[in-house]
């Protein structure tokens, strides 16, 4: 394990004067499986865009394995960092062609067609993600979960060192949520691929990530292992919501329970009631 593989140093980026990150610093080890969590509007997506390069960096630096990513040409960066967006917007493109686009960073100027190697790599990752049977279908004919798997296959075809994902499971059922996160975990462990993703679901974040970054109001509220980050004090302060945390009986990872208004009232009544007296 090489320490400090991805170093984000005092990164500032944002939208004019409307919303800006306040000097965010993060370091990740090679092979980390990290999640960015936080309420809506906390700056998760802005941070993500800053790292992926779709928002210009105002100050600060991002380096991966001692290379400053800001100085790289788009093609060079795409060989190191692959991005999976929330919705693969892919209209009427065949799945195989879609995955093959992951080989674009490796093309030559006058190379109009993919090489045999490109095909082999695309096929390998279509097999790995389990979408090889759909390769001749159009992207629009796949379900949301299958589209997301195709997007991951495309990202893997870039053979990146860092995989960034923007809420890859937010609109999926639990079958696909678990399927995709298991796949990512498998890739992370087998290929030592560094994964950084925005993830809304705190329970999934706790279960799968080994490092969490909790954002609030444009800066990092806290970061660390799921146990360090996901205690009820932190969650209540950042999300302004009452929760109860306990450990998952199998994995020992923290699990978060929400508390409804009714239960809160009952609890309060119970709490405020005078202690029972026993006159004997």
């Amino acid at each position: 394990m090489v320490s400090d593989y991805l170093i984000i140093e005092k990164l500032r980026c944002g939208y004019g004067n409307v919303f800006n990150l306040q000097a965010v610093s993060i370091t990740l080890n090679k092979g980390a499986f990290a999640g960015i969590i936080g309420p809506n509007g906390s700056g998760k997506t802005t941070l993500f865009k800053g790292i992926s390069g779709s928002l210009p960096v105002k100050s600060g630096a991002i380096s991966l394995n001692n290379t400053n990513l800001n100085n790289l040409k788009p093609v060079e960066k795409a060989r190191k960092v692959a991005v999976v967006t929330q919705y693969p917007d892919a209209a009427g493109i065949a799945v195989e062609d879609y995955v093959l686009m992951g080989r674009l960073p490796y093309r030559e100027t006058f190379q109009f067609f993919e090489t045999q190697k490109d095909h082999d790599i695309a096929e390998k990752y279509m097999r790995l993600t389990g979408i090889i049977d759909h390769k001749d279908k159009l992207m629009t004919q796949l379900s949301g979960g299958e589209q997301q798997l195709a997007a991951i296959a495309q990202a893997l075809s870039q053979e990146p060192e860092l995989l960034l994902l923007d809420e890859p499971t937010s609109h999926l059922d639990i079958t696909h949520q678990v399927q995709i996160l298991n796949l990512l975990q498998h890739l992370n462990q087998e290929m030592n691929l560094t994964v950084l993703m925005i993830i809304h679901d705190l329970n999934l974040a706790a279960e799968y990530c080994d490092y969490l970054i909790m954002m609030d109001k444009g800066s990092i509220f806290t970061k660390g292992t799921p146990h360090e980050v996901l205690n009820y004090q932190n969650i209540e302060q950042v999300y302004k919501t009452v929760v109860v945390t306990q450990n998952n009986p199998l994995s020992g990872k923290p699990a978060i329970f929400l508390v409804s208004d009714n239960i809160m009232k009952n609890q309060k009544k119970h709490h405020d009631a005078p202690p029972p007296t026993f006159d004997l």
Binding site: S52, G53, S54, K73, P74, V75, E76, K77, A78, R79, V81, A82, V83, T85, P88, D89, A90, A91, I93, M101, G102, L104, P105, Q158
Partner: peptide, 15 residues
């Protein structure tokens, strides 16, 4: 690649 949108294309190394 631009069929996927400007941003996604730039993630694939397209200027």
């Amino acid at each position: 690649a631009l069929r996927l949108g400007e941003i996604k294309a730039s993630y694939l190394g397209i200027n």
